[in-house]
Design a protein around this nucleic acid. Structure first.
Lengths: 257, 257
DNA sequence: TGTCGGAATTACGTATACATTATTGCACGC
DNA sequence: GCGTGCAATAATGTATACGTAATTCCGACA
């Protein structure tokens, strides 16, 4: 790589800054204090969150396209942060960016759902096993139990949206408690990716009574520190649910959503 | 064009472009032809590849820092594409970007290795099971066998670097053949993340004879379409190797590399 | 002597400008 | 009539400009 720039283009390895590493003086103090109170949020993140929210809530439905400039104008910022947000969303699989066509919100196909469920099945079951193996804290038990209780309550009241929210909370807690940040990140990302599909099928699928039971059983297994049972219960839960969903979508002829 | 959108900033949902969706005329022909021959690579990708290569090969060792401007100067481009590349590398876990300190190449700790191996163990074993379940094609069998043969050859010749390359090829093929793009992407990303550590421990660990045997056995299980065996063999292989590595690093006191 | 406060500088986040390249509309030939 | 080539236009990729926030440097003070 003959990058010209004449004299001694210094190798990026040799840090040219005056040797002051590891030296953060107290000027940071006020800065830190400010950062805590100051709710300042970078434009890039605002763009990311705004666009993601619109996608998850179907304001930007799958298949819809948008140009950088349109989004920038709509969000009242320049193209730069929008562009960065789009790249991030693309890496998360929510949108695709085709060079001159703007971003396109990606529809989820049945095949996509199958891929995602295959991964979630394994990773969540692994998480369940890990929690049971190390022994859960009381707070964790409570977190999971509360989520299940909320699922029960929602189901009694026939509030499917609330049930879905609680179910999502349960799954995300499970991933969080496993203590594997990377696993958690993957699970969270894929959950977002399937959000739309879950919301849609919510009213088309049979009442998810079984899910509540499964989760209750899982909590019991975790509480009694039985890694094998925890893994098995949740793995089966996920496989069963995945199959049901794929079969349901296939039956309804919905393979783009 | 007074695009300051004073009145009625149009909602991003209503695509304002003239209704010409699904209309790509033959003008694309020459463009496509050009794109194939033209080796034109966007700066952003050049930056990404260049920086990633330097990280994987320890030219930018873990812990080293670099500013956007430095990298831009070194690569002969502006800050913009460098910045985009950095964001991508950060999302892949290779670097961290602290607001005023530039990017820092992330060291891999023993805990990180444990996290990554936990995930790879599950996902690769799942891949193995999936391939066995659907029945491998002859080409796939050949691909895997060739990789194993190369591992054997390298081990005979005591060429550890070649062994590592072949081993990596085997694992990546496994992930690729599973037919789950997302799974493949995750495995590839984490492989890159542990590249440095594997290269380092290569000479410190016992000769990896066992790995070759494990992989041979896995190919046999896949060939005979035994999903259970395929999963078990590879899962055990990964668990064993992961434990060995973590124990080795712990014993040597290397927990940042 | 060591710590503090403030000015200068720096690095970044964002906006804007510019060049390139792809797509569209249209005139033209078969 | 339909497909083709060319000019116009638009959208992107990249570079540059600019304001802000943070860090460093430096002099004063306890």
């Amino acid at each position: 790589m003959a990058d010209k720039k004449g004299p001694a283009a210094r190798a990026p390895g040799k840090k040219p800054r005056p040797a002051n590493a590891g030296r953060e003086r107290q000027a940071t103090r006020q800065a830190r204090a400010r950062a805590e109170t100051d709710g300042r949020v970078p434009q890039t993140q605002k763009a990311y969150e705004a666009i993601k929210l619109r996608i998850l809530n179907n304001v930007l439905p799958p298949g819809s396209q948008a140009l950088e400039q349109e989004l920038a104008a709509a969000l009242g910022m320049s193209r730069t942060p929008v562009r960065e947000a789009m790249m991030r969303l693309a890496s998360e699989g929510l949108v695709a960016v085709r060079p001159r066509h703007g971003m396109r919100v990606l529809p989820i196909s049945v095949a996509d759902m199958a891929e995602i469920y295959e991964i979630l099945t394994e990773l969540e079951a692994t998480a369940a096993r890990a929690i049971a193996a190390r022994g859960p804290t009381p707070a964790e038990i409570k977190g999971l139990e509360d989520a299940v209780a909320e699922m029960d309550k929602a189901l009694c009241g026939d509030d499917l949206a609330a049930w879905a929210a609680a179910d999502e909370r349960f799954h995300k807690l499970l991933a969080a408690y496993a203590g594997n940040k990377r696993l958690q990140a993957i699970v969270d990302t894929f959950f977002d990716q399937t959000h739309r599909a879950r919301m849609l099928t919510l009213k088309l699928r049979p009442r998810p009574t079984r899910s509540n039971d499964d989760h209750r059983a899982l909590v019991a297994a975790i509480r009694s520190r039985d890694p094998g049972a925890a893994h098995r219960i949740h793995h089966e839960h996920r496989v069963r649910n995945g199959r049901m969903l794929v079969e349901l979508l296939g039956r309804l002829g919905l393979n783009q959503l």
